[in-house]
Design a protein around this nucleic acid. Sequence first.
DNA 1: ATATAATTCTATTATTTTAATAGACAATAG
DNA 2: CTATTGTCTATTAAAATAATAGAATTATAT
Lengths: 137, 137
Amino acid sequence: MLSQKTRYAIRALQHLADHYAQGPVPLTDIAEKQNIPSKFLTVILSELSREGLVATQRGRDGGYWLALSPIDISYGDIVRLTRGSLALVPCASRFAHEQCKNCLPEEECRLHRVMLRVRDEMAGVLDSISLAEQFAV
Amino acid sequence: MLSQKTRYAIRALQHLADHYAQGPVPLTDIAEKQNIPSKFLTVILSELSREGLVATQRGRDGGYWLALSPIDISYGDIVRLTRGSLALVPCASRFAHEQCKNCLPEEECRLHRVMLRVRDEMAGVLDSISLAEQFAV
DNA sequence: ATATAATTCTATTATTTTAATAGACAATAG
DNA sequence: CTATTGTCTATTAAAATAATAGAATTATAT
C-alpha cells in the first residue's frame, strides 16, 4: 500500500498540475480543496520542494507551483521520490536495491525473481502516465 | 512493500511446494532452511492453516503440507490472503474495496483511476505465476 | 499407558513506521 | 511596517508490524 503521506503528495501535485502556469498556489488552498491536514501538508510540500519537484515563494502572494511541466512528471517519478522505490520488496528495487532481511541469498530466492517482474509491470504503467493526463486511464 | 510477514509466508509456502506430496514437513525444518524465526513462523503457518492453504498434523511425525497442488496456488492468491489485497490504495482493491481516508469523492479522484490500472497489471503477473513455477519469471 | 515430538492458541511485549501537531523563524509584497 | 505565507526543527500520538512466551492439545511409536 502507498502510505497516506504518499497519497497526499500525489493529490497535492495533481492540484498544482491543475493550476500550472497560473502563479503560486498557497498551501491553504491545496489543503482545503484536497482535504489534507494543513500542517502535515507543510511537511510534505517542503520535502517536495527540497527534492526539486515543486518551486516555492515565501511571503505575501507566495505559494507553491510545479517546477516542471505536468507532462514531465510521471506517477512513477512521484512514487519513487516519496517512498524510495516502486518495488514490493527491497531486493527488487532498481534504484534503491537492498537485501531483504532474513532472506536467502538473492540468487536462490524465487520471490526475488517474481518481484522483479512485478516491478517492471508497475513501472510500465506508472511511468507512462503523467500529471498532464487529466482523464488518464 | 510487502511486509516481512508476507515475505516469510511466501517463502514458507515455496518450501512446502518443494516438498509437495512427501508427507508432513515439520515447522523446524522450514524455519531453518528458510531462515525464518520459528516462533513467528508458528503464527504464520497457523493462519495459513486456518485459511485452508496448508494442511497440518500435530504430534509426532506431524507437520505442514500444502492443501492444494502447487500449480493451483498463485502468488496473487497468497498476497491477497496475507495482506488482504493486491491494490496499492484501499479504493483500488477489487475484493477488499474501501474508501481512502481523507480523500475526495472516488469518482473525482484521479489517483483512484491510475491505481485501478496498476492493480490490474499486478494481478496479471501475480495470478499467472504459481508455486509450481520453479524457475518462473 | 507413557514419553516424545509436534502443532495450536492466547496473550503480551517490543520495535518501527506513519501521521499529525506545535511553535519559532524567515521572506516578500504592498 | 505589517500582514501573509513558506521553512525548519522538534515532539507527540497513534497504528501497524514483528517477535516472543508459555501453557494446552494432539498424535505416534513403543
